[in-house]
Nucleic acid binder design. Sequence first.
DNA 1: GAGTGAGGTATTGTTGAACAATCCGTCAAT
DNA 2: ATTGACGGATTGTTCAACAATACCTCACTC
Lengths: 243, 243
Amino acid sequence: MTTTDWLEELRSERSDLGRASTAGRVADVLRTRITEGHLRPGTRLSEEDIGAALGVSRNTLREAFRLLGHERLLVHEFNRGVFVRRLTVDDVRDLYQVRRILECGAVRRLAERRASDSPPAGRTAELLAPVRAAVEEGESAAAQDAWVSVGTANMHFHQAVADLAQSPRVTEVMDHLLAELRLVFHVMDAPQAFHATYLPENRAILELLVAGDLAGAEAAIATYLDAAEAQLVEAYAAAAARG
Amino acid sequence: MTTTDWLEELRSERSDLGRASTAGRVADVLRTRITEGHLRPGTRLSEEDIGAALGVSRNTLREAFRLLGHERLLVHEFNRGVFVRRLTVDDVRDLYQVRRILECGAVRRLAERRASDSPPAGRTAELLAPVRAAVEEGESAAAQDAWVSVGTANMHFHQAVADLAQSPRVTEVMDHLLAELRLVFHVMDAPQAFHATYLPENRAILELLVAGDLAGAEAAIATYLDAAEAQLVEAYAAAAARG
DNA sequence: GAGTGAGGTATTGTTGAACAATCCGTCAAT
DNA sequence: ATTGACGGATTGTTCAACAATACCTCACTC
């Protein structure tokens, strides 16, 4: 426990301190409202109404809107207002396209790093710890029939896979992608069942990773994503057809 | 020229029209000022001064700051102000890590798409047109000793490679990454020579792509990025050493 | 009845000013 | 040399106002 250790700890907490911004907190509130489905896609967010409801000025609310707009949860149409994003089927396809590149790419980079130089075998297990944690989180949630938790655990799993790239920017992009995807899940009749379907696959991918079969893991992720995309696109078309 | 063609043209111009926002235009001005190196990293941007200089109110300027903050060109420190981003060596490494995943991933996805189903051979040439255009743009710029144009052509090349994924989100992320990288290039003594070095490599990668050797192209891009990263990191350390 | 045009209303875009909160440099004190 | 207090400067946030734009309604024409 040297002095620098203390400083490092404090440094990591500094980001939490910075969250004091009002606009940031407003954005947090709206974000959860959106991702949890209380605000349906297409809904228009009136500056005046929401500003009054949350007790913040229009200017501050606008800053919050910008934040969420860049996360693609809101769309800002000039002189018309902001709306909860309504994703098209093409958006869904694109989201999975990027996920294929990112998640598979993360595993691939891991493989290249191991092949070349820097892989103390112990560190691999340490690196996979978040993945394992997410898998177990999902399984135990399913065992308790906590279906919403299964959904978030699934998100954690894929976030953990992307984090294998050990790249802050990949992490951030992935975070935004998953937030967007949450907009989509609400169109499904039974999102719980949808997520539960993939629990065994998560476990299988984890096993491949720990076994060191990175090419196999990459392939498994790819087919995983293809299947999920197909399922979502179908559900999306059905939802669009009936209204 | 059917009716739908007309509509498509108009649709592409709509984005230009939407740029009428004052905050957006202010952001444009600042963005070029930053990426062209007139505003050095670490510079603090005073709300009052810049607002007066550009003739916009503080509130509008703040919206512009948020926009550039999300593009990672500015950092916003609470109660202290906004600063032109100062990238660390770790940032440079991360940027290239993401570029490896994105650019190689785009080529890889192209390969998978060709292997499976949908590749009319004619469309491949059409897809590669922007890549070829960027290569020739760079070569002709070098022939005329227009070194700054060589730099932008190089950006266009890599943007075109990423666009092979045919994913709007990949395009956008890549756009932001390259904007960030522009912040880095200015620390080099001779960025012109740096970019010119890679002109033959761009040509070689293009040839591999048209020849259909996608695995070879992917490998070439990877070694390309490794070399560029090493060169930049070295220059960056040198610049940091001398102050 | 369908489509067109004019006018009114509501909402957003932008500005300017104001006040509180916070940071930064200075200076005195220990 | 470190600490603590003070004061100036900048940011965070709000409010009120006006201009610009979009949407709705309604009369009008064919």
